[in-house]
Design a protein around this nucleic acid. Structure first.
Lengths: 346, 346
DNA sequence: GTGAAAGCGCTAACAC
DNA sequence: GTGTTAGCGCTTTCAC
């Protein structure tokens, strides 16, 4: 069906080897011969089979990498994916992509299929599952960079952000504005970033001498609707919180969408406060604008890709853990005091 | 470096062919032999090289498809990509992914690289460039589905939405609410979807007997900040529009972010009106909530993937053009009358 | 400067 | 049931 070098060679009246040289851009072919070959290539519409090529060129790069994220439709991961792909394009590599959907089985399936296609390296947002599989791939020369989360028990390059410190800062900020009953809403604790952010929340409460009340914490919130439901529930309960710290963008959107921050209290005077992890579109345009802990997904992806390609190019130094810093962005929703009762600092 | 079937065969004391049968799950191997082979596979950590496999299994699927969108970081395309990938995962296929960034050169580079990797098919959001390249790939057996936009002059399956009708409906809605000076803000007209939506805008004006005034139209707005700047400019001009129809989500976000709809006019009474193409997060939570023409990117991606896999499985019927319908969602921003002057129906 | 032969890792086709 | 041979499309190696 597709023409091969053999077909081109026959059409041009040269040997297969000469075609290979022309296609590969190698020297040692006379201009006249090269011209003949090139016109045959055009006439037949020949295109090299890179899989066959990579099969023979053992030990050399396949110029393909694999990228596995939690959910490609999530704006955080899609921004990350885009910057990885940009970096790959610049380097002449292709990107195989997949979503784990937080399912270790799917993660393994997809990573395994990536490796069967002889990828040079992997950029992985690891699930909570077992990653001995990755270890054996690394032994076989596949480079691995983990991103957003470290891989448990595996000594690989990783690119993460200061989740715990960012969260602690956010919650301390709420405490500094007089809040003592602060809710935590996040996705599954088993997801490393969520665990870290929750740890930051707990630490901030502890160092302010505020007891942890799990009645105002919710884990496992996947997506906006679930988060909206959870916050409505909390607000309707007997002793509602005066502030919320939310563990990721989807949860923050849910809290905003539930309507609680727009309706309770007079803006500027007091009211239900919110600080969210992750920035999101229109955060500045809401009433009040939403205070967030912001991270830069494009920078995370770019850093991971640069690390990976460095490894592919032979960098054999010790694995690095790059921790990018979050930015705390005060906009209004985190700077309101509690409505009632006011601080009881007894 | 990586163990091969040969290594497994030697370790298990059988022939290479027996290993191939076991790995390929083919019958005709005794349970005892299979067990020996399987334990050798585990011991060596053998994994099949699917590129070599596909090379030999001529005419059979490589179980890899290529997906090329405008911008993977754009929420519309990332939602589409996720649903394509879900469908591929269900089918046991992998997805090579790329962004054209609206650049025909990059489109060609990436598509060409996809085909060199022997993909079974392509799902493409075509740029405005020349696509004779796709034609020659199709002649060689690569299946192609265009998505979001048709491919100019190429008879392939396509999945689009009723852009023109959706836009016309939106603008008619604004006219019905008394607006006669309605701005159009969109991305480059050369992008098919934008051209169609603009055509719908023009048609709605025409059938209402309103003259087209290009002073209140802006094309080529890529991204939120540019759109925000453009709308501020329009509002500051001598004879500002009383309503805006925006051509995609990013432009709508820009209009919202510019602050014009939140500040002008008393809500419910009158004020600057807005209808946007594409829904977006928090559209219901803004003040006023934003009326939109909504499309379902996941459904678009799923439909395209199902079409493509049907073709890969041998469906040779005539190319289909699937047009999914948009939904008009009234929320408030499109249902306010003009501030001044009121309708002059002379 | 050009070409013939061997072989990358695997499977189709055919032995036995 | 198991093994042998040939060959997928290409590059490496070596000969001329």
């Amino acid at each position: 069906m597709r023409p091969t070098m053999k077909d081109v060679a026959r059409a041009a009246g040269v040997s297969l080897m000469t075609v290979s040289r022309v296609v590969g851009g190698e020297p040692g072919v006379s201009p006249q011969t090269a011209a003949k070959v090139e016109s045959a290539i055009r006439a037949l519409g020949y295109q090299r089979n890179d899989n066959a090529r990579n099969l023979r060129r053992q030990g050399q790069d396949s110029r393909t990498i694999g990228l596995l994220v939690d959910d490609l439709a999530n704006p955080f991961f899609s921004a990350l994916a885009r910057s990885v792909e940009d970096e790959a394009y610049r380097r002449g590599s292709l990107v195989l992509v997949g979503s784990t959907n937080d399912d270790p089985r799917r993660e393994r399936d997809v990573l395994s299929a990536f490796c069967s296609r002889q990828v040079d390296g992997l950029i992985v947002v690891p699930t909570g599952g077992n990653h001995s599989f990755l270890r054996s791939q690394m032994a076989r020369g596949v480079k691995v960079v983990s991103v957003d989360r470290p891989v448990a028990g595996l000594d690989v390059d990783s690119v993460t952000v200061d989740n715990r410190a960012g969260a602690e800062r956010a919650v301390r900020h709420l405490i500094d504005h007089g809040h003592r009953r602060i809710a935590y809403l996040g996705d599954r604790r088993e997801i490393w970033t969520q665990g870290e952010r929750y740890a930051g929340y707990v630490a901030a409460l502890a160092s302010a001498g505020i007891g942890l009340d799990v009645a105002v914490t919710r884990h496992g919130l996947r997506g906006q609707p679930e988060a909206a439901g959870a916050v409505r529930e909390l607000m309707a309960a007997a002793d509602p919180p005066t502030a919320v710290f939310s563990g990721n963008d989807l949860v923050t959107l849910g809290v905003v969408d539930s309507g609680v921050i727009g309706t309770v209290g007079a803006a500027g005077v007091g009211g239900f406060a919110l600080v969210g992890f992750d920035d999101f579109p229109l955060s500045e345009r809401l009433d009040p604008p939403v205070t967030v802990v912001s991270q830069d997904p494009a920078a995370i992806g770019r850093t991971a890709a640069q690390l990976l390609f460095g490894r592919i190019d032979g960098d054999a130094s010790a694995p690095r853990s790059v921790v990018l810093l979050t930015r705390f962005v005060e906009r209004g929703s985190g700077e309101r005091g509690p409505i009632s009762p006011p601080r009881r600092d007894s």
